[in-house]
Structure formats: C-alpha cells, structure tokens
Amino acid sequence: MRSLMFQVADRAQISPFRLSFSGTLNIVRRAVPKFQRLQPEEIPFFSPGL
C-alpha cells in the first residue's frame, strides 16, 4: 500500500506524506471488484508473465 501511495504521489508531484493511508486503502478496496471483472487485455499494465 505504501509503495502504491509513493507511486501516486510521485506521479502527482506531491509529497507522499500528504496522502492518507486509510483513505488510500478505502479507494483500493472500492476499486478491486471493478478490476476483478476486467479481462487481462483490458488492463493496460497487466503482463501475463508476472
């Protein structure tokens, strides 16, 4: 989770300390069911070999 937060903060060019751990966790929990319904080819960063 912290790694994800760092990546998002880096992309948004903000300090990772400005992000809430529990807020990020809630966002990820809401997004998981949507990603579970996608086919692998619909996920742009998916690599079958990983």
Rank of each mutant, 00 (worst) to 15 (best):
M1P: 06
R2V: 15
R2A: 13
S3A: 10
S3T: 14
S3N: 12
L4E: 04
M5K: 04
F6T: 15
F6G: 15
Q7I: 07
Q7S: 13
Q7N: 14
Q7Y: 10
D10M: 13
D10P: 08
I14W: 00
S15D: 03
F17Q: 15
F17A: 15
R18M: 11
R18T: 10
L19P: 03
S20V: 04
S20A: 04
F21T: 00
F21H: 06
S22C: 09
S22P: 06
S22L: 05
S22M: 13
L25Y: 08
N26K: 11
N26G: 04
I27T: 05
R29E: 12
R29C: 00
A31T: 00
A31L: 04
V32N: 04
P33R: 01
P33C: 01
K34H: 11
K34A: 14
F35K: 05
Q36N: 14
Q36R: 14
Q36V: 10
R37C: 05
R37A: 07
R37W: 02
L38F: 11
Q39A: 13
Q39W: 10
Q39S: 12
Q39G: 08
Q39V: 08
P40S: 06
P40R: 08
E41A: 12
E41P: 09
E42F: 09
I43A: 01
P44G: 05
P44W: 13
F45Q: 03
F46A: 06
F46M: 03
F46K: 01
F46N: 11
S47K: 12
S47N: 11
P48Y: 07
L50T: 03
